[in-house]
Design a binder for these strands. Sequence first.
DNA 1: GCAAAAGTGTTTCGTTTACACCCATGC
DNA 2: GCATGGGTGTAAACGAAACACTTTTGC
Lengths: 271, 271
Amino acid sequence: MEKQSYTYKYPRPAVTTDCVVFGFDGRDLKILLIERGIEPFKGCWAFPGGFLQMDETAEQGALRELKEETGLDLRYIKQVGAFSDVNRDPRSRVITIAFYALARKSAVQGGDDAARAQWFALNDIPHLAFDHDYILRKTMDKLRHDIHFEPIGFGLLDEQFTIPELQRLYEAILGVHFDRRNFHKKMLQTGILEEVDDFEEAPPSYFGDRREMRSMDIGALFGGMMASEPKASYAARDDDSRSTRRWGTKFRFNKKRYDEFKEDNNFKLEF
Amino acid sequence: MEKQSYTYKYPRPAVTTDCVVFGFDGRDLKILLIERGIEPFKGCWAFPGGFLQMDETAEQGALRELKEETGLDLRYIKQVGAFSDVNRDPRSRVITIAFYALARKSAVQGGDDAARAQWFALNDIPHLAFDHDYILRKTMDKLRHDIHFEPIGFGLLDEQFTIPELQRLYEAILGVHFDRRNFHKKMLQTGILEEVDDFEEAPPSYFGDRREMRSMDIGALFGGMMASEPKASYAARDDDSRSTRRWGTKFRFNKKRYDEFKEDNNFKLEF
DNA sequence: GCAAAAGTGTTTCGTTTACACCCATGC
DNA sequence: GCATGGGTGTAAACGAAACACTTTTGC
């Protein structure tokens, strides 16, 4: 790699990206941090991130850095905003564009590929490098706000989850407690959840079709109206010796229903 | 003018700011645009904005450019976000940080200091330079969202305003129609408005024809939409001793009450 | 006098909240 | 069988939506 340099007529700030990665282990909301190996703030913890390259958007840059530094290969991030305080980096003028991302439970529990990446529970965050404390506050504000309007929670759970798991997540993010029954009711009322058969690791093709069908039926039922009972008959089905569980019902997020729901509500939805 | 240059080890994108300035003339929501005098997009309309300087935050830069280009001296802007598409500027890699700002009615009607600045009604926006069409869409989305949670409307009206004026503004922003009585009630019960004595410096007929304008405008606007019911008319009884106006009650935004209200509602308020 | 806008109160309806019981599971 | 957590129904309270009449002002 030969040494190059780039010259401009006017001074330019450097531009970096930072990514606040949220994870949820079933109890606490967590954040993925990197221990800095170089000055400034060597030894401090910071968000994964780095300098933006010329051929990538900020989103792409944030995802690339995230992968490089933590091994996490995510798809979806959401911009929090640009942070441009003049002295936020002691070396020189650096503007950062911050994002947040959601990692599924399995990613949180699966080890960290990167040596110096580590998950921290939200109430146990160390003092962070640069203005990352401030960025974190702003990002939390945004997450707490966003979760009321976008199906964010589902990005933090595995594809299949139970309503109580979802509730614990909401409570962890918002720091409040919901009534079990009302939460359950409200979530189902939106119609954006579809029930999933209990078979966690069903043989692919044989049960695959069947699960698909059943999901559609349930979806249609909920979409219709909730006046009375989703008393879906658990009739003759499922005599399986090991899975006679009548609770622990798994659901999954149905994007199609969500989009419809959004339109029906003129894009003003609330969770 | 001496020629200088700045050299960096790695390439850097240029960073600009852009400011979407909203105004409201009593009828339409408007946006302040600048006609570009140079390439690229010479002759096209664009948001006021320009290159960020090294000693100012993005907010400061946006306000500075706004003042330089339009004469508007505002205080408060809100960040929309960074736009970083690789090819959004045909010249080179330029990232922009976009903001929106709110200008009071009087600023809208007061002429534009800058030769090439002009207000455009929202439904009459020309095709804009760069990705400003896209930025505008995103900014509108954000404004429509924000107005439910922050006392944005008041920044677009003069310090004193009537409830119907406020309602027209909300309707212009959100593109919906509210019931007069419910709107009135809801706004008052938030407690963040305080009534202003009628006799306070009513700036006389300088803007006298504004009322006329307004009536006409409203008539035209509602011509097809007034679904129901101003029923019978009643004879005017002029036995009232004082012919002081019994309507046209002015209110003003009470920031202190607003802050209290916000706390009472745990910062989750809705308008 | 007439048209158009502003101000006000009540009823209806739907949503949210509060709350109790029974069933599965694991120890 | 006991503790823990999951699943469901229902009534009360609250807030939002629908809705009519009266007065002021300008012409």
